[in-house]
Each structure stands twice: as structure tokens, then as C-alpha cells.
Amino acid sequence: MSTLKDQAETFVELRECLVAASHELFDAYGMKTQYSPGGAIDPWSDAVMAVIGYAAEGLRGAVVLITAPHVVEQLRPEVLRLGSDVGSDLALRDVLGEFANMLIGRVKNKLLARGLAPLLATPTTFSGSEIQLPVPRSGMSAWHRFSSEAGEIYVRLDATLDANFILPPRQEHVVPPLAEGEMVMF
């Protein structure tokens, strides 16, 4: 049985995974970001949002990404910025959805080293103005702000932990999974 303090510590570790994964991902797409915890979302006139759920034994939740359309346009790979659908709502939602997918994939790869293999859902995306996001009724939830020259990207981690859930310690002897961008031929 873990105490509330244990659960809070586990949540901090999960958040650290998320922050490291976010930095790596934005970096890989040429966007330098500065992290700061929390951050209230400004009531933007326009925003794009993506959410992906995850679930492991004793742990479940979601990762939410929200940012302004012009920031998503910056994240979009250069080779795709010349297409006819540049800036279209569908294209921007798709790009942020795939970023959410790559982000949660990176978090999962970090958790694999801890012996945890969450199942990942596929992204749900939407866009609009004055999007209001209720805080989950159970579990823990925290916002993370990544500031770049293009603007702010907010990432929320929601996690509900079972009373007996314990994040296993890092297993040094475990072979790390393939890193992002790597490949193996069978």
C-alpha cells in the first residue's frame, strides 16, 4: 500500500519523464524550448489541442498538448510547409496529434526502463477558441509550460494511481529499448 506521499513522489517522477521527453521531442524538430512548471493558459482566441490516454497496471491517465496554431505551424516539418493545406485546421490538428503521439511514445520508452509498459491510445484532437479544460476529478494533474521563440506550448499530465501502485526502480541491467530515430532489421 503506498501512501499519498509515495503517490505524490511517483507523480513527480512521471512529470520528470514527461519534461525530459518534451525537450527531446521539440529539440528533434528544431524548436528550442525553456521549461517552467505550471502556467495558466491564456484565453487565446485560437488554440489547437491534442489528447492521448494511456493505461498500465495500476496507473492510467492522459497527456494533453495545447498551443496556438502558429506554433503548430512551426513544429510542422519544413518539407510539409509548402503543401496546399498549410495552416488548414485539419492539418494543424493532425500535426499536434502526431506530436502528442511521439511525446507519449518517448515517455513510454523511458518508463520501459523502469519495467512499466503502458498501453497507448490514439490521439483525439480539436481546435477552437477559449477552450476550457476541466481538471480530472480523481488522481493528479499538472501543467508544464515550454516557451519557444514561436510561443508557448502547454503540456498537461493526468495520472490516477491505484493505492498499491509503485513505480519500479530503474533497472540498470535492462537493455534499453531502441531510441527515437533508430531502426532494427529482423
Binding site: A28, Y29, N101, M102, I104, G105, R106, K108, N109, L112, A117, L120, V175, P177, L178, A179, E180, G181, E182, M183, V184, M185, F186
Partner: peptide, 30 residues
């Protein structure tokens, strides 16, 4: 071609005849 890097999933794909596994983001030349 996936964000997943879980060895169990890779073994499953190999057993089902896949020839390789690339973790996103990919390099075009690769």
C-alpha cells in the same frame, strides 16, 4: 514505423513476418 519501442511488440511483429522496425521520427535517407 512507429513511436513504440517496446521489445515485446517488436518480437510480435518479427514473429508475424515484419522485416524491420523504425522508431519515429525517421530519417528520409534511412
Amino acid at each position: 514505423l512507429t513511436t513504440e519501442g517496446q521489445p515485446k511488440l517488436m518480437q510480435q511483429a518479427k514473429a508475424l513476418g515484419a522485416k524491420g522496425w523504425i522508431i519515429k521520427p525517421f530519417k528520409p535517407e534511412q
